[in-house]
C-alpha cells in the first residue's frame, strides 16, 4: 500500500501543494504528468531523499514520514537506471544484501535467483558501461528488488528504450509484480505504458493528483499527439 496524504513540497521555485495519492496493496499504480509537473520530486519524497514541508507518507501500513531512506523498505529505480559504474552487475544485486549483513552463501543464492528472474545471468560479471538500455533497467530493477521491498518505485523506467525492448519490459514488469507482490508506483508520460500496466492510474495536473479511469486513458491515448507518445 502506498498512501500519500496532504503532501506539500517546496523545491526551489517549484511547489506541490496538498497532494494525496492511494495505491492499494499489491496493485500497480501508474502516475502520469508532463515534464516538470513534479513527478520526480514526488518520487524522491516517497523515498525519503527530499524533505517535505507538510503531510504524511505511509508505505505497507507503516508511517514512514520520519524514516530515513534505507528504513522505508522501498525499491527505487531512477530514470536511466543510475547504475554504479565501478561495480559489476553481481555487486549491484549484492549491495543491499551485504549492507544487511547477509551470509555470503545466502547472497550468492539470492543474486542468482534475481538474475534468473530478470534474464541477466550472462551479465553478472560485467560492468555497467557496456550494457544496453534494456539490460541497464533490468539490473536497476534487480538491485531495487534484491532485498524484497514491499514497495517499488519506477521513475520513467522505459523512456530510453526502443519499441521492441519496451514490449519485453512490459511483460517483465508484470511478471516481477506478480512474483514479488510489491505495491508499485510507476511514473511515465506514456499512455501506452499506462494501458499496458496500470491497475490504477493517476495524473498530476496543475499541482494536483487526480485518478484517471480506463476510459479516460483510452480517449487520451487516441487524441494524444503521436510525437509525445513516442518520446
Amino acid at each position: 500500500m502506498i498512501t500519500v496524504e496532504n503532501l506539500t513540497i517546496q523545491s526551489g521555485d517549484f511547489r506541490l501543494e496538498e497532494i494525496s495519492l492511494h495505491i492499494p496493496t499489491g496493485e500497480y499504480g501508474v502516475l502520469m504528468g508532463q515534464t516538470g509537473s513534479g513527478k520526480t520530486t514526488l518520487v524522491e519524497c516517497l523515498c525519503g531523499l527530499r524533505s517535505l514541508e507538510k503531510g504524511r507518507i505511509e508505505l505497507a501500513g507503516q508511517d514512514v514520514t520520519e524514516l530515513r531512506p534505507g528504513e522505508r523498505n522501498i525499491g527505487y529505480v531512477p530514470q536511466d537506471g543510475a547504475l554504479f559504474p565501478m561495480m559489476t552487475v553481481r555487486s549491484h544485486l549484492a549491495l543491499p544484501l551485504s549492507i544487511r549483513k547477509w551470509k555470503p552463501a545466502d547472497i550468492t543464492h539470492r543474486t542468482d535467483e534475481m538474475a534468473q528472474m530478470l534474464g541477466i545471468e550472462h551479465l553478472l560479471d560485467r560492468l555497467p558501461g557496456k550494457l544496453s538500455g534494456g539490460e541497464i533497467q533490468r539490473v536497476a530493477l534487480g538491485r531495487a528488488l534484491a532485498f524484497s521491498p514491499t514497495t517499488l518505485v519506477l521513475d520513467e523506467p522505459l523512456s530510453a528504450m526502443d519499441d521492441q525492448t519496451r514490449e519485453q519490459m512490459y511483460q517483465l514488469l508484470k511478471n516481477v509484480q506478480e512474483w514479488t507482490q510489491a505495491t508499485v508506483l510507476h511514473i511515465t508520460h506514456s499512455y501506452r505504458e499506462a494501458r499496458e500496466l496500470a491497475d490504477c492510474q493517476f495524473e498530476i495536473r496543475q499541482g494536483r493528483i487526480e485518478p484517471v479511469t480506463q476510459l479516460e486513458n483510452e480517449q487520451a491515448e487516441n487524441t494524444s499527439v503521436h510525437g509525445m507518445e513516442e518520446k
Partner: peptide, 18 residues
Amino acid sequence: IDTRREKVALTLGCNQAQ
C-alpha cells in the same frame, strides 16, 4: 558525479558513510 547514484544507495539501506 551524479548525486542520483548516492541517493539510490541510500534507498538500498546504506547510511551516508556506506
